[in-house]
Amino acid sequence: MLTLKNISYQIKDKTLVEDVSANFQEGKINLILGPNGAGKSTLIKLMSGELKPSSGQVFVEDEPLVQIPLAQQAKFRAVLSQNLELSFPLKVHEVVMMGRYPHFESKPQEVDKAICDQAMDRFDLQQMAHRNYLTLSGGEKQRVQFARVFAQIWQASALKPRLLLLDEPLTFLDIYYQYELMQQIKDFMKSNPDLTVIGVIHDLNIAAHFAEHTFLMKASQLFKQGITAKVLTEENIYEVFKVRVKDRFMMDKL
């Protein structure tokens, strides 16, 4: 669904992403792993269009990403990053409604309200719908952001299959929420088969548990990519992280 062709990204003489080519298949969970500074977040930002590649191109289906207007991109592609703050106090339901902004002109329609309602149900936010976002705990805030992002791509778009990009969205969450939120994504994908998820994650166990395809990055390059079980091997992990893991890091137990 999303294809990277020989993507590189440089700032001055520093190369953050070097000659990465990859193909992300529709309807799959693709997770990107690698040590700090390997270029994972930069790669996600290149896919979302926040950064423009120094060379190479990003394609959505067969169309170059740069040729799709921002307003259209927002109708099929949502991005969730870590630790989003608001500059002013807003109610939780107002934040979730922002996910519908690409879909209406100036006033939310009935369908937008209904979708926000369902998204808040899904992430168990109804009882705090009227609370001030700024007063929530970190985990609660992130659930609100999940609901916002899901509201954005709740319905299939006529333009393209849907795409959800995750930039370390689970950082600072406890292990219960990490699994819970990933499970929500997986459940949502069952009834929405056109949705592709591409995400940067730190936790090897989460990747092993949820990712259908895994991409290992090392020193600005894509080191290995493919079916998770074939990528996350003891040797590969040692090669990238310099850590010996046993038991294929509990993968079989999970």
């Binding site: 926040e50 921002l70 500059s87 807003l90």
Partner: peptide, 13 residues
């Protein structure tokens, strides 16, 4: 949308 930050506003189209 800008309350979420400039990047996020851009991602909302």
């Amino acid at each position: 949308a800008l309350m979420l930050g400039e990047q996020e506003a851009q991602l909302l189209g």
